[in-house]
Design a protein around this nucleic acid. Structure first.
Length: 479
RNA sequence: GGCGGGGUGGCAGAGGGGCUAUGCGACGGGCUGCAGACCCGUUGAGCCGGGUUCGAGUCCCGGCCCCGCCUCCA
């Protein structure tokens, strides 16, 4: 197994990855607050961590993956009020919509999708323990975390308490004893419609506590990877560490991974600029595979600037892989390779190149998940393969099969190929098309171009693209 | 102001002291009935100023500029 290196925000360095348990990885990622539909920036984070999970599994780890949903918060309450429905109904609706989007992206659901509103009792217990340990105190408007009681505060975001105070626009709140303190429990305000009873009166959880509680519940006091967008480093993850470590004496997660922000044409995505791009709108125009390729084609820590053209370009580039994969499928199902079991030298070379590609891909991915570099290798191989097909250098069924399997497996790791098993239907379709193309060849032989072109055009209308190459027509399904 | 990440060819975007990144594009040519695909070639780069070195996009120092976070934020 390759050693994996991960850039850890906590230490500010790339470090060798060693999970707590030998072959197991426990990973917690901060999901959305469901006050609106998820956008392309959220999608970047989810796509990336879905990939991390698959990659870790690919190299042999057993991964337990938790992605939380925050379904109670100020913004939800406000938005619900504007719509005139209850906060819980509102959150329910957007939770459902989030799950729809998640599945539409063809991401594998995590092992657990914990929701804050389903963990209120545990949250209350957790807060009580922090009060008992004197890391928290009650006030008329809720319960606050005593930041100065936790000496490691600031270690994740690399800032000192003084820095945070200078020029910081810290929220003033009547019950706070120190401006740096943050709410663990917010007492119900009269205009708010969602609350639970607690030893400190009715109210609701503060923003950061749910992640401490839910990660501990599902992954234990200490787990391997904690992820999220880089905007969560401060204060969310900083506070999460403060909460959890105060209780257990341990940093909750050993490796903190943060995904860079996505901008829209050079500007921050924000409600006020009105440039939020919802993932469901993108998926109306591009396949989930293209979106995933687009996201993984940039290193996860780099900021990405989303533009209209960028997805179009991603689509074109991804097509290099799709084309090779489909052409191999066509070769296999078309049947004119069944005879050949001898492997030529040229084919041997191609098979060898699989090996090299695989090594380079694993090396790239092991180096802080360099998906860009890995995809480059996949593209390079795909180009070579397609070229070999066009040059009629692939003669044997076994070679075609191995190449297809390799490209398919690798693409699956990234989730960038639509699943298209070679089914019986596919084989029948292939035979039909082959027969049609044979007829067309007859017309071409006698230079009846009108009929030949008409056939080609007809197939194109039916979604079959035909290329006339040196080895004869190569067709594939376009979408 | 503090913290973090950057500045690479027309665009996107890697690597990271000497070895073609890659993709999109542009230009010329080949193949081809046409279209497409494919092939060959050309084009074109490293923010600025110093330094280290036989040699620097790549390391060091100093600038300049951009972006993010520091407030709800994936």
């Amino acid at each position: 197994m390759n050693r994996i290196y991960i850039f850890n925000t906590l230490t500010g360095r790339k470090e060798p990855f060693e999970p707590l348990e030998k072959n197991r990885v426990k990973m917690y990622v901060c999901g959305p607050t469901v006050y609106d539909d998820v956008h392309i920036g959220h999608a970047r984070t989810f796509i990336f961590f879905d990939f991390v999970r698959k990659f870790l599994e690919y190299v042999g780890y057993d991964v337990r993956y938790v992605l939380n949903i925050t379904d109670v918060d100020d913004k939800i309450i406000r938005a619900a009020r504007e719509r005139g429905i209850s906060s819980l109904d509102y959150a329910e609706e957007y939770t459902r919509r989030f799950l729809e989007d998640y599945l539409a992206l063809k991401l594998r659901p995590p092992d657990v999708f914990p929701r804050v509103t389903k963990h209120i009792e545990e949250i209350i217990d957790f807060i009580q323990k922090l009060i008992d340990k004197n890391f928290a105190y009650t006030a008329p408007d809720g319960v606050y975390y005593r930041v100065k009681a936790f000496k490691g505060y600031g270690k994740l975001s690399k800032r000192s308490l003084e820095e945070m105070l200078v020029g910081a626009r810290v929220e003033v709140s009547e019950g706070k004893k120190d401006p740096l303190d943050f709410a663990l429990w917010k007492a119900k305000k009269k205009e708010e419609d969602v609350c639970w009873s607690s030893p400190w009166g009715s109210g609701r959880p503060g923003w950061h506590i749910e992640c401490s509680v839910m990660s501990m519940k599902y992954l234990g006091e200490q787990f391997d990877i904690h992820g999220g967008g880089s905007d969560l480093i401060f204060p969310h993850h900083e506070n999460e560490i403060a909460q959890s470590e105060a209780l257990t004496g341990k940093v909750p997660a050993r490796y903190w991974i943060h995904v860079g922000m996505l901008q829209i044409s050079g500007e921050k995505m924000s409600k006020s600029l009105g440039n939020i791009i919802k993932i469901r709108d993108i998926l109306r125009r591009y396949s989930p595979e293209v979106v995933k390729f687009y996201v993984l084609n940039t290193h996860y820590r780099k900021p990405v600037d989303y533009t209209e053209e960028s997805l179009e370009e991603a689509k074109k580039t991804l097509d290099i892989v799709v084309r090779a994969y489909d052409a191999l499928g066509t070769l296999i199902s078309s049947g004119d390779y069944k005879h050949s079991f001898r492997i030529t030298d040229e084919e041997m070379n191609i098979l060898y190149s699989i090996r090299g590609t695989k090594d380079r891909v694993l090396d790239a991915l092991s180096d802080d998940f360099n998906t860009r570099e890995a995809l480059k290798e996949l593209m390079r191989l795909s180009k070579d393969v397609y070229q070999a097909i066009v040059d009629d250098k692939i003669k044997s069924l076994t070679v075609a099969f191995q190449l297809r399997e390799f490209i398919g497996d690798l693409s699956n790791l990234f989730g960038i190929l639509e699943e298209k098993p070679i089914s019986e239907e596919h084989e029948i379709l292939a035979r039909v098309i082959e027969e049609i193309l044979k007829l067309r060849e007859e017309f071409r032989k006698v230079k009846n171009w009108e009929v030949a072109d008409a056939i080609r055009a007809a197939l194109n209308r039916a979604g079959i693209h035909v290329d006339d190459t040196r080895r004869g027509p190569v067709w594939r399904i376009i979408r």
